[in-house]
Design a protein around this nucleic acid. Structure first.
Lengths: 371, 371
DNA sequence: ATCAATTACTGAATCGATACAGTAACTTTC
DNA sequence: GAAAGTTACTGTATCGATTCAGTAATTGAT
């Protein structure tokens, strides 16, 4: 939808109250009124009081945002870029927790938060994504080379990338050690005695694809996190002396439980000897657990499940999920904090947040089986 | 947190590329370049191509947002005001579904979406809430007379209020017939044969309070929806010939399952004869169902539960919830749509969305009991 | 062939506020 | 009591783009 008629502008200038109006009323200069709002200690308290008083009487609401932005060059807002489908953005607990953290920190600093949805396949030009009035951007988990990311980077403003991609020194970064986290998850299953593991991933690229992941597909992965976690899972398997190729990689086609459930059914059918399933996140693990129920596999006796993230539901799910905890809300807070600091002149930084294996009831030693 | 140092402004003017730069390069006037971006059919296609080409070469990213805003008076963004705690905003399925709808519609129209969190007890002045660069506001479910709402209204821009309060002709409105919905819910329980009903509300005011709601407390309610629903529940009870005072009103102190669970335990203890519980929304019903389990009441045999909203989880919950469905995502879409239309010169409107009783497994006739 | 209408462009004024240099009045210092 | 410093203000240039009145060139109508 694009509107034919432009929005009503500021063209009823008749009774516009501006800084000048207030200045005239009080009998001071425009500058002094501006200072009354922005630099309270550059003028006497009594005068300031008189000015604010007059402003209130005239119904003046404070300096016009657009004019201030133009002159001062700062927008008082940060942008939050997503490239996922909006249905996903507002449903996925990882994403909403992250947003909560960002919103908390930006609200505390009095900074506005502008959402910049750039779902795949929608043109960017003329949208908020390339013209939003913001001082910097947080980019949340985007595939390598995404056009929306390029657009954001070309604005030459501070950017904080969260999770992926890793732009090196082109932008600040907030994330975790995904490889180590994945390794921790796999190690846990290996320690329990599992020898037949599989990985159930959400997506390797921004396109939806599901099913077995061969080396060809793996090589095309544009999601950094997926690549890192695969490397982590694999390194634990290799170090345990198992054959690297014995680690089955399977793609769900989405990070939601429904996609995961469907994919897990196929995976279990194709690889019935697998007893330990490494899930890309808790939503995937939830789907996998539903799949287990569907195909008659008891969790954890017939199939152990390790999630990732430790979303609130991981604790209340039946069975409660063993998972790798990462501080999602903090991630949002830290991202906003780094961005705000950088906007105010600080240097770009990298923040790696801690992770932790949380053992609950979705993992157990494999049942002894007659091979 | 407030930053001492102002953000770095636009004071490295050295190699700023502006409309003028592009105009000089091509050898046309500033106006023509502006037209190339904003009014493509006001100039020849070939010239337009040359201009865009030159802009690309110069790395010009299109008209500066702040300058455009100042001159044209329109911001290209809408604000979304919340007064709930941010933890709640991003966790509550009603709210996130609504946000999804708003985000979808604003993204489609190329309009930015600025989040304006105004949790209680945080000063407004100087924050994004009273100075955000937006063309209008959507106000989501706010208590009567909230200061953030007043601040938004004083900007003399289009406002769409969702659910509450009802400002009459001071603002556009999107909501449902809450009274009818509540009536439908109560009627369903009455039809099943229940004679001892209670209402478990989230909150009647923006302050947190839990426990029995007497007439005094009821009279102070500042949340319109709560008042309407109470009236609806009560009207069904009265029309069924039951004593109006037999309808127990109980406040949970929050719209989350945890608050509801705790409150429901107390409620059941205080009023053990109640067999039908009218829950303010599905989150409350989920909490109540957990409470039922805690105190050994089987749902629906020992206690029937009716929710409200029909969030996705209502279907997958055990037992699946009987509820009043309202189109939450649509509500967001409609709100954004009304606001955009009003910004573009349309009149204020009221939209009342449809509701529907969805009968699932959380309600059943009361067990015959020996009184 | 003439006048009117349309198209494609230009130049100047303007939006409202902020930055910055400048200044008058007042205070401190020795 | 003169020089130096501080405080509290003013005046002007400026931010970058859009609007609008106007003009020259082209097309169309009669």
């Amino acid at each position: 939808m694009r509107f034919a008629s432009p929005p009503k502008g500021r063209f009823d200038m008749s009774n516009q109250v501006t800084l000048q109006t207030v200045a005239d009323r009080v009998g001071v200069s425009r500058t002094t009124v501006s200072n009354a709002y922005n630099r309270p200690n550059e003028l006497g308290a009594a005068l300031r009081e008189r000015i604010l008083q007059a402003a209130a009487e005239l119904g003046y609401r404070g300096p016009d945002a657009a004019a201030r932005m133009l002159r001062s060059g700062h927008m008082g807002a940060i942008g939050l870029l997503f490239t996922e489908d909006l249905r996903f953005v507002f449903t996925d607990p990882d994403t909403t927790s992250f947003m909560q953290g960002v919103a908390e920190t930006s609200a505390l600093s009095g900074t506005g938060l502008t959402l910049l949805p750039a779902p795949p396949g929608v043109a960017l030009s003329g949208t908020a994504v390339d013209s939003a009035a913001v001082d910097g951007h947080i980019v949340f988990s985007v595939a390598d080379g995404d056009p929306a990311l390029e657009s954001v980077l070309s604005r030459n403003q501070p950017v904080v990338v969260v999770d992926e991609p890793d732009l090196g020194n082109r932008a600040s970064f907030v994330g975790i050690d995904d490889r180590a986290g994945a390794r921790l998850a796999a190690q846990h299953l290996l320690d329990l005695g599992h020898t037949h593991l599989a990985v159930l991933l959400g997506r390797l690229t921004s396109e939806t694809r599901s099913g077995h992941v061969g080396t060809d597909r793996e090589r095309t992965a544009t999601m950094r996190i997926a690549r890192e976690r695969i490397a982590g899972y694999r390194s634990a398997v290799v170090d345990a002396g198992l054959d690297e190729t014995s680690l089955v990689l399977w793609e769900a086609g989405g990070n939601d439980p429904d996609s995961a459930r469907r994919a897990a059914v196929d995976l279990i059918e194709a690889h019935p000897t697998v007893t330990g399933l490494l899930c890309f996140n808790d939503q995937i693990a939830i789907g996998a657990s539903q799949a287990g129920q569907l195909v008659g596999r008891h969790i954890p006796d017939d199939l152990s499940l390790v999630g990732f993230d430790d979303v609130p539901r991981a604790l209340t799910w039946d069975p409660p999920l063993t998972t790798i905890r990462q501080p999602l809300v903090d991630k949002g807070r830290v991202a906003a904090d780094l961005l705000l600091k950088e906007i105010h002149g600080g240097p770009p930084r990298r923040a790696i947040l801690p992770i932790e294996l949380v053992v609950r009831a979705s993992t157990a030693p494999p049942l002894a089986r007659v091979d």
